[in-house]
Design a binder for these strands. Sequence first.
DNA 1: TTGTAGGCGTTATCAC
DNA 2: GTGATAACGCCTACAA
Lengths: 333, 333
Amino acid sequence: MATIQDVAKAAGVSAMTVSNVMNGHPNVRPATRERVLEAMDRLGYRVNVAARNLRKGRTGTIGLAVPEINRPYYGRLAAAIIAAAGRHGLRVSIEQTGASRESELAALSQSRNRLYDGLILSTVGMGPADVGALDVDHPVVILGERIFGGPVDHVAMPNEAAAEAATRHLVERGCRRIAVVCGRLGGEADVSSLRYAGYLRALAAAGLPADPELVVTAASLTMQEAARGVRERTARGLGFDGVFCVTDTVAMGVLRALADAGIRVPEQVKVVGFDNVDESAYLVPSLTTVDPDHDLMAERAVALLAARIDRGGPGREEFAGPFRLVVRESTGG
Amino acid sequence: MATIQDVAKAAGVSAMTVSNVMNGHPNVRPATRERVLEAMDRLGYRVNVAARNLRKGRTGTIGLAVPEINRPYYGRLAAAIIAAAGRHGLRVSIEQTGASRESELAALSQSRNRLYDGLILSTVGMGPADVGALDVDHPVVILGERIFGGPVDHVAMPNEAAAEAATRHLVERGCRRIAVVCGRLGGEADVSSLRYAGYLRALAAAGLPADPELVVTAASLTMQEAARGVRERTARGLGFDGVFCVTDTVAMGVLRALADAGIRVPEQVKVVGFDNVDESAYLVPSLTTVDPDHDLMAERAVALLAARIDRGGPGREEFAGPFRLVVRESTGG
DNA sequence: TTGTAGGCGTTATCAC
DNA sequence: GTGATAACGCCTACAA
């Protein structure tokens, strides 16, 4: 494999000049540039990224830590982040945390390993008690939730407001006993708790009581758990006429369980999801859901991280994306 | 950031000894090891990956190039590959090709850029004419299809056999006019063409004619295109009683279009997919589909690549995974 | 068992 | 406008 020295020799210049040509520096005479380019081409020269990284103290790669890439929401997010990173000249290395607190903390310390220039972390397992772990000296952006007081940048979903709007939509469509399907409620600033809070707010605003009977738990927010939870609930009789699901994935499990029980959507029960993953428009019935503008959030997250990489120092910026409700068949079109 | 030298100084040894401790080399006196570990800990030492890479000529990262990570099948695959790579001590950097021939070729030449130790490439846009491009001097494993004669390792789906089995299943369930929804048929060794061939074989074996009217094209295999194709077809009257979809994603679009047309599945039309993505079990109706054992394929692909990275030289191994048909509601349970 | 020397390929600095 | 020099931090010889 040809090195910069080989090219320099072949072109009759110094390595420095070759470097300057490569990096588009000014002050290279056109004729020289030509000779160098020709030599590079002839030798099939490729820059050695490891050497460049060592010299520059950068790797050109950022890490993206998500619970599992194989879930529609994280897939959607990853796609947007890879695209956004590409626009910033960065590559993306993906790590799966399995939504466990330990793996999320491990991802944070990996980033200290200087594997990546920075890390975008989707926290699910970590809680406020782990804020201290965020105090690392490398660029980190938390994506998804708000961990109050953390010394890092955040790109947050409009969790509460959007959950409230989604639930209000059910109220407006005539629902009076609205169930919610969410993960474990620790009272912390995780997806489930924040969206649950929005759900409660909408109920209160509508003067509806909050019945603990209507809270269905799907601990790790999988289709399977959601379906099981709803089956258990309907086995005791249909005690609700609307369901707010904290994610679209959960909603898919819910729709399936309702179909199993022979309950018609939206006639008997109306369902709302959250995320607007690609599949939600194609489900039968198609799913009414919250669209949080993934592309914008991804772009902001990468932009924040890139800025932090360039400028250094800790950040505390917060960005909460916009959202809109996409009304489809599951709430009556 | 502390370097190996700093640690050496702090522990009163040479850098070499620190290196030996780090890499678990034998011949380090326990007491010395202790002193070194203590110093590393005290200084918060982290190895500089760039320097190690430069020295070793390795990056510890492999590339995974897929059309779009935001599709259930590729998400599933990526999850399995990241997990498998982790077991081999490798990280995974993901690149999205958008299924275009140009981007796939670019991914191949990127790998020559020595960004990664090796590349796993899911070819969709490239054809046999591009076999030459595979003749790179870096480890590459092609995942998904067979490009005959390429000088690289392949991990292939059992495309033809599985497609034939899926179609035969429709025949066995009583279907006589079986449509197929696939991408453009170039007669090359891509997913659509191979699975289409399997479909044809099953028809022939059953003594059924192959009617061009029954070939629905969804050029890039999206839900949208599949739905549109089926809508156009049903608008001219329901001319089929079974559909073989070349992917589950396509099947989701098909199920949606059939629902729009008021056609009942499986009573009027039976549907089979391919991939067994997580969602397929939760659709309404749940989807009968081919399960190709993604985890095994991912493991094999990573193992082949890892072996190639270690041993060097070009490879020509072919591995075709096993498959099984998962029968669900869309063909009558 | 531990230390010394040297170089992996690149680029920043500063001469010329 | 171009080139010599010196790192960047680590690891593989080889020497002690």
